[in-house]
Simulated scan of single mutants.
Amino acid sequence: MHYTEREHDMWRTVCGDLTVRHRADAATEYLESAEEPGDPPRARAPGCVR
């Protein structure tokens, strides 16, 4: 799947907002698992793997 640059911009905005909310409100277990190596970068929308 190919995304436009506008869609990638939206993804960056959403991920940034969610990161702030997660740090404030998420359970410790979630925060620890979210920091594991190998997590996909959040600067671009993820592609669909078929």
Rank of each mutant, 00 (worst) to 15 (best):
A34T: 08
R6C: 05
L18Q: 11
T19C: 02
Y30Q: 04
R6K: 08
D9R: 15
R23E: 14
P46I: 07
P37W: 03
G16H: 04
D9W: 02
V20L: 12
E29P: 00
G47D: 13
Y30F: 02
Y30I: 12
M1D: 13
W11H: 10
A26Q: 02
A34W: 05
P41V: 15
T19F: 08
E32R: 09
V20W: 07
T19R: 14
V20F: 12
H22C: 04
E32Y: 07
H2G: 13
R42N: 06
R23V: 00
V14D: 12
A43T: 04
G38W: 09
P37K: 11
E29N: 11
R42W: 03
V14W: 13
A26F: 07
A34C: 12
T28Y: 00
V20H: 15
C15A: 14
R21P: 06
A26I: 00
A27M: 02
T4C: 08
P41M: 13
G47I: 00
P37Q: 09
Y3I: 07
D17S: 03
L31Y: 02
T4P: 02
H8M: 02
S33Q: 10
A34Q: 14
W11L: 01
P40D: 14
R50Q: 12
R23F: 04
A45H: 10
G47A: 05
T4M: 06
G38I: 13
S33H: 15
P40S: 07
R44S: 08
T4N: 02
T19H: 11
G38Y: 07
R44Q: 09
D39L: 07
E29L: 06
Y3Q: 12
P40G: 12
M1W: 10
R42G: 05
E36R: 14
R23I: 00
R12Q: 15
G38L: 05
L18Y: 04
T28W: 00
V49R: 06
H22E: 09
S33G: 08
D9G: 11
E7L: 09
Y30L: 05
C48P: 04
D39N: 10
Y3P: 00
V14K: 11
R50F: 10
P41R: 14
C48S: 01
